[in-house]
Nucleic acid binder design. Sequence first.
DNA 1: GCCGTTTTCGGCCCGACTGTTTTCAGTCG
Length: 569
Amino acid sequence: MTNPEIIEALELTARLLELHGADSFKIRAYSGAAFNLDKLTNQQIAGLSFGDLVAIQGVGKGVAGKILELVEKGSIKETDELLESTPPGVLEMFRIKGIGPKKIALLWHEAGIETIAGLEVACENGSVAKLKGFGEGTQQKILDSLAFLRSQKGKLRMNQAETLSQLVQDVLEQNFERVEVAGEMRRKTETVETLRFLIAADSPVAVQKVLADIKVLHQNVKSSTPFVWRGKAFDQDILVEIISVSPAKIENELFIRSSAEGHLAQPAAEGGTLLKIASAEAVTTEEEIYTKAGLPYIIPEMREGHGEFAWAEKHTPADLVTWDDLKGILHNHSTYSDGNNSLEEMATFCRDLGFEYLGIADHSQTAAYANGLRPDKVRQQHAEIDQLNARFAAENPEKPFKILKGIESDILGDGMLDYADDVLATFDYVVASVHSNLTMSLEKATERLLTAIANPYTTILGHPTGRLLLSRDGYPIDYRAIIDACAQHNVIMEINASPWRLDMDWRWIGYCLEKGVKLSINPDAHSTQGYYDMHYGVAVARKGGLTKEMTFNALSLTEMERYLAEKKP
DNA sequence: GCCGTTTTCGGCCCGACTGTTTTCAGTCG
């Protein structure tokens, strides 16, 4: 049993206890144990003894016993019993934003609502607003949240899609000679609705026959044409499309079935469109299609019909940033705030990946929930950074690895950063981010960010909209005004590379380039493994046309230090 | 249920904001 499975079981137990009105401190004990177990980055919980378990902070005799029971028997009896007496629809309500355990319990026990559908009906006829502690506002919030959840149904975030796509691809490759990933996966979209694969085969019927025998594939969606298979894979709620194409025209089909309509509609030099040319005679490479159309070659990620040809007037694919161009990692957390690895672990791992510098940027004091740093903690961290840097310098005097002193400073409701200037002045750089009070109007949210950007201590604007993909929309902002202000105040825009965020949205990279605003691909890592999220950041950065030249963390350590010194007020 | 002792039980418990209240409980990051 994996660590996430064990942690999920404890969190589920805590949720169930909340629904059934258990003692609040008992609930805290379960969720607290889960929280602490989540911090074990290099230990298999399933292999631990009773003694090992109770030695973990927040895990006592009770929870340790439950974990052993879970590992041995596959479930916890108490949890199973609670599950049996809880309608699944009630548990689903935990996904709704704006209501928590107390309100869900009330909906269930007082109003007798046991399903999401029932909840929606009750909201629509106004009866939820009449419940104690509810009102028109909460009722509308529930309806909005349900509508949002419905709109996101059947979609996956890029990282989830990548994992599932690889599984399907592996299975297909065991059965067919040539399999190509097409569609959204090839364009590296931030969320994915359809996993699309092409199979080179002369007989679509033969392909269908083989597919029918693959156990992990289920064709439960009617196909409109015989060469397109539509269904589900590995019991996941996302559409999988497998298309048989003639081997002679696979490059043409791959091009057509990976490009967005807007891209295919691009007019060719001598009339017609890219689609028309791609649909004509067979080619052996995609480059040929662009050559025939008299258009510059566009990489698959950029084929969105979102300004890629205008971009190509000034740039070539060789200008685009790659992972290898990145020289440092700037937005990262350690155990000083809510990270899972110590400062030293974060630094040495970063160094061993071949980077020249690590920018640590733990949470600031307002982020109490994330153990944000009070000024005395800041001083303590800076002392430790000085020590580590001295060690790195001694170990490799020629080209020492370096930790830069950063902070992820909360942007308060009025746009102020949450330290006094004398504390802000002690950092090498500041990532300014919004974490609370997320329901602002476009005007207020923009004004708030503009104030933060104008602060002379702000180096980077962190995840500008606060969106969590498939989970919550970002607050609305006036992108143009924000990017213009970044240009004016020499502030870097973040591409937060966490697959949950990918914020700033890649669609605004072109405008940043136009205005001369550099972008930083930041993983927002909360553990050493979190660094790898930059893989997703690089994908969307390239998609938006980000060049190496305009990538902030493609600066070498020397260049970075010079920039930061000059930027400091 | 966990912790830390005052070794047998009492205390645990971020803080801003929202929407519902008419002084605060619930939710969130």
